[in-house]
């Protein structure tokens, strides 16, 4: 769309041009990062429409704030903005993270320094306690004791299939009662135990 000269400029120069209102620079930044930002957002949120909106709003914002923004580095700025927008989408309840995404976050990004405080622990315990009896039993054996489905089945004298059904129901119900944030804490919790 624009000359390749602009397309090849380093981020810092593009940021300076953008500040002066250069549309080719804006276009070059868009070309360089939009599909990457979309990829990152989609991997987490798994919703095409929401992620397109996210990228759109991010760039609209970049253009309208171009005069006042102090963009030291374009890339970190764009990704920070994406984080904030993803959180906004989740807080507004527009979508909820699917289980796969939650597990990906935990397994790849959770470390010991993530603190779960007493109150959180308590509300999670309460919700677990509120599960139907058998369901709760299976859930605790699986998450806290880290037993395999097969081990749980033989211990409780039920089929593996039934174990799986109980677990699915437990997760579904906990997710509904806890919401994204606490549900995440819960999964994290069972890893820490």
């Amino acid at each position: 769309m624009y000359t390749t000269e602009v397309q090849l400029q380093p981020d810092k120069e593009l940021a300076a041009l953008l500040k002066q209102g250069s549309e080719p620079a804006f276009n070059a930044i868009y070309k360089r990062y939009s599909a990457k930002l979309y990829h990152a957002a989609y991997n987490l949120l798994r919703n095409k429409e929401v992620c397109e909106d996210l990228v759109q709003e991010l760039f609209v914002d970049l253009w309208s704030k171009r005069n006042t923004l102090e963009i030291q580095e374009v890339r970190p700025y764009l990704y920070r903005s994406a984080v904030n927008r993803a959180l906004m989408v989740l807080r507004a309840g527009k979508i909820t993270l699917d289980l796969e995404a939650v597990e990906m976050l935990i397994s790849e990004h959770a470390t010991d320094d993530l603190v779960i405080d007493k109150d959180m622990r308590k509300s999670i315990e309460l919700e677990i306690a509120a599960l139907p009896e058998k369901c709760r039993e299976v859930f605790i054996l699986s998450r806290k004791e880290q037993l395999s489905h097969k081990e749980i089945a033989s211990q409780l004298n039920i089929s593996v299939k039934t174990v799986e059904n109980h677990l699915t129901r437990a997760l579904k119900s906990l997710r509904a009662s806890l919401g994204d944030f606490l549900f995440l804490a819960l999964i994290l919790l069972s890893n820490i135990y």
Partner: peptide, 20 residues
């Protein structure tokens, strides 16, 4: 619950950092 929301923020921030 600020704490749990902070937890997710942290994880998502790390996730995007890695993606970057």
């Amino acid at each position: 619950n600020k704490q749990s929301s902070g937890l997710l923020s942290k994880l998502i921030a790390r996730y995007f950092e890695k993606q970057q």
